[in-house]
Computed example of a mutant assay.
Amino acid sequence: MLKDKICIVTGGAQGIGRCIAEVFAAEGAKKVFACDMNMDIMSDYENRFSNIEAVELNVCDRDAISAFVTDVKDTYGRIDVLVNNAGITRDNLLAKMSEKDWDMVVDVNLKGVFNMTQHVSPVMIENGAGSIITMSSVVGTDGNIGQTNYAATKAGVIAMTKSWAKEFSRKGAQVRANCVAPGFIKTPMTKDLPEKVIAYMEGKTPLGHMGEPEDIAQAALFLASDRARFITGQLLKVDGGLVI
């Protein structure tokens, strides 16, 4: 589905991002750049996948992003797919949330998406095509107790995506922008939750269980591929029916 495409996946070290990078590689991408700050847990990538390259990249570092994108463009002449997956949580009730935790989540989850897309989108527009996929969350559409900062960023990327869908195609370029909103997924972010919290969330999910990173990766694969060539500005919830 992604034969010969050049792809960038942020937050590619583990969880959903790692699964997306591996699925893209398995689906024929010419090169997948798995970007993250945690290089230690990406050391096995290149031994297992000849078409995945681990890249140390901070989505808050605009100079590093500029240099990276320039290098990819100079080497391959194009960027076909960008997956904005890097994200963090710093949960707390609003009354107890520190300004530091607010700023950190906004910087990574919202400004980091802005940074990456601002640098990659001109390459796509120049080439006349591309797919930008940003990870939102059902929390971004319906909110959640103790996640004011996270919810704000995940709602914000939906609004940015809709704006980009209109902006990037206005001169005829087939540059698409869409969001995926995961529900309750088995990732490093959720693995340490108390059993009673997991049982509660599974009970609220009509399909009765947590999702797997593969479920999100397959949604991203579809939106990245030419099979979704007439889909832009959309939010795809992959949540087992948690938010209906």
Rank of each mutant, 00 (worst) to 15 (best):
T70V: 02
I8W: 04
T190N: 09
G203E: 00
I88R: 04
T89V: 15
M42E: 06
D61G: 07
K191C: 07
F24N: 04
E214P: 01
D192G: 05
M189E: 00
P213I: 01
M135K: 05
F222T: 12
W164F: 14
L221A: 10
L193D: 13
C35K: 02
A152P: 13
G183Q: 07
R170Y: 05
M201E: 13
D142E: 13
A34Y: 08
I125W: 10
S136I: 02
G156E: 06
E126H: 11
T75F: 04
P194S: 09
G87I: 07
I145A: 14
G240Y: 10
I185H: 09
C19S: 15
G172M: 11
I41K: 12
I125S: 02
M135R: 04
G183A: 07
I231G: 05
V157K: 12
V175P: 00
G15L: 13
G146I: 13
C35Q: 00
K166Q: 08
P194Q: 07
M39W: 02
C7D: 04
D80Q: 03
Y200M: 14
Y200Q: 14
V157C: 12
N178Q: 03
I198E: 08
N84Y: 13
C19M: 15
S163V: 01
F168K: 01
A220F: 01
A152N: 08
G143I: 14
D36S: 15
M124E: 04
I79P: 00
F168V: 12
G203C: 00
N127G: 10
P188W: 12
I185E: 09
V113R: 08
D226F: 03
S50E: 12
S169T: 07
V238D: 02
E126S: 12
Q14D: 11
A173M: 04
A67N: 14
G211R: 11
M116K: 03
L2Q: 13
T153A: 12
A177R: 11
S66V: 01
I133C: 09
C19H: 11
K30V: 03
Q147H: 10
I158R: 09
